[in-house]
Write a protein that binds this DNA or RNA. Structure first.
Lengths: 332, 332
DNA sequence: ATCGTTTGTGTAATCGTTTGCACAACGATA
DNA sequence: TATCGTTGTGCAAACGATTACACAAACGAT
């Protein structure tokens, strides 16, 4: 109420003001504890008057539960991760869980950051970054079982995880493109080292193999538009491919622009271009991308479901697999 | 080290293991405190062996400083906010500050969420949302002076803030478009109620007035691509404008697509389209948007500068104003 | 009138740090 | 040798909540 007080009032002080003990103050704020309803009402009224709220830090120390959740991500700037995070953050907050974002370009910084977050006794950890090994995650958060959001065949099955399977969807896309007469495929990776990228590539490579085909050319970008553009230019100059499968949607848009602007090729006639992720932007009229799409809502629902089971004390490990499905656009 | 321990070791336990008191453990971890360097080295070695790290929750309780920073935003999914957050999060983490994201669609939820975060004794609060009144922010975080990232003429000058001024840049853009022969302008707002949007509109309206012009038509979207598309279609059907100024870049891309696809109009020949924000995507080849752009790096540097001054004990209030400059693309 | 149960409240220990104060050991100085 | 800083360490009191335990009052049933 009175906005000018510098220091926050404590439960002991409020207790004096309300003529009760600080234990009773605490009880007034915990929904199911033995306390007279008259007392509770009076306390809540006084609390409102003095702007009292229980100190969550002190409570966390006592409870051994902080209601903080660490989210480890590669880049928030990336539209795909941004969309996913938006969904996840809303779901967490609806459950009174507060997300701490750990986002780091450099790998050793990332581990350092995870160590820092672990000292805050976070209740849950969700790892979106494939740059973090499961062992690192388990070691650093040794009291909190992490949830790995991964595509990797997990070597340590003691950790809850959510996997994505795009094999079928990739097959449908390849079938269509091959049906349209294309034969010479290139894969434009997001990174050189990531196993997520390797797995995604494998879905398409396997599908090609069923047609007796293989990738004729490879290139490596960094998931950014600029890298998609630049690598596509190089790629198309050095080989005569007529289809490019890209590591994500943003690179696909870059590749499409490169093909169109620099080399005067149109999609899908001259060249087919395929993205992966299914971000909102892929469906925009100016992009209308064919992409191997993931249902982000279902994805984040799955994350939250695992978190809820962990909250309920059932640490599993739980494993959920989601399938990717094609979004058909005009680029392939 | 030993990854299987369920409970975290405490300073008292480590003290026993190292043959010292827990006070000494604490001192080993604070850089400038009176402690023998031999003792410190020994303690750090033992700590590493047992995987001990001081509990940040307990430390926060004692210190009255949590090193948590609350970021209140409208939507992370929005590319502009996502880009800004990425920059800010990196800067915070480099200073060992952990960001808690508060992101909420509904207004009463948002206040509730801010109250929740305030119980965590956050050291700093940065408010990016123009849906939060300064008074609310000050009341809710009454022990932590918030930093308002706002365009609003602040009524309460007791709060640090960062403002954006686009008057000059908007003038340059309008001059160019009027010079190209356009006379009939529309403004496509991002929201009906936001004063940020009103202020942005005013920059352009004032510039038009200097040419003896005014907005002929208005429309209201929600900062999304779809709303930009839909409102532009309606707008172009009901009035003969030849220039649309949009509340942000994403809506501008939607409006451009609508003009091109639905009405067969090209930019900048048939119609000029202008965005605001200067997100990375605006510069992509497929968009090449003319936009009133903000230097996001300078913007977030400013936020961090204010935070650092607050950390140093100088709560100001500090005020920084940044200017927007045109990015010239092919849409106007 | 008595007993058992339920209800509401207070006391005090606890969560895991930090830090002011006291004090011992030590080398340097007079 | 007596004195004086300086260093390094331990003791114990915070920090602000939660909660097991104890106990008094109220109530219903015999």
């Amino acid at each position: 109420m009175s906005g000018t007080n510098r220091r926050r009032i404590t439960s002991k002080e409020l207790a004096k003001l309300a003529g009760v003990s600080s234990a009773t103050i605490s009880r007034a704020f915990s929904p199911d504890s033995r306390i007279g309803s008259a007392t509770r009402d009076r306390i809540l009224a006084v609390a409102r008057e003095y702007g009292y709220q229980p100190n969550a830090i002190a409570r966390s120390l006592n409870n051994q539960r902080s209601r903080l959740v660490a989210l480890v991500v590669n880049a928030i700037g990336n539209p795909c991760e941004a969309e996913e995070q938006q969904l996840l953050v809303h779901r967490l907050q609806a459950r009174q869980l507060l997300p701490i974002i750990l986002c780091c370009a450099d790998h050793s910084d990332r581990l350092q950051l995870m160590r820092l977050a672990s000292t805050y006794q976070v209740d849950h950890v969700v790892i979106f970054s494939d740059m973090v090994s499961m062992q690192d995650a388990v070691d650093i958060f040794h009291t909190t079982k992490p949830i790995i959001v991964s595509f990797e065949p997990l070597e340590n099955e003691d950790v809850s995880n959510i996997r994505i399977d795009g094999a079928v969807g990739a097959g449908e896309i390849i079938d269509k493109i091959v049906g349209d007469g294309k034969r010479r495929f290139a894969y434009l990776s997001g990174t050189k080292s990531s196993w997520i990228d390797k797995l995604r590539r494998k879905w398409f490579a396997d599908a090609l193999a069923r047609h007796g085909l293989a990738f004729e050319a490879e290139a490596f970008g960094d998931y950014s538009y600029d890298s998609g553009f630049k690598e596509a230019v190089l790629l198309l100059h050095r080989s005569k491919v007529d289809a490019i499968i890209c590591g994500n949607d943003v690179m696909a848009i870059g590749a499409r622009d490169a093909a169109r602007r620099v080399l005067g090729k149109n999609t899908p006639g001259d060249i087919a271009i395929v993205g992966q992720d299914g971000i909102a932007m892929a469906a925009w009229d100016c992009n209308d991308l064919t992409t191997l799409s993931l249902d982000h809502v279902a994805f984040m629902d799955a994350v939250v479901e695992v978190i809820e089971r962990h909250e309920a004390g059932d640490e599993g490990p739980h494993s959920i697999t989601l399938a990717c499905t094609p979004r058909w656009g005009s680029t392939a």
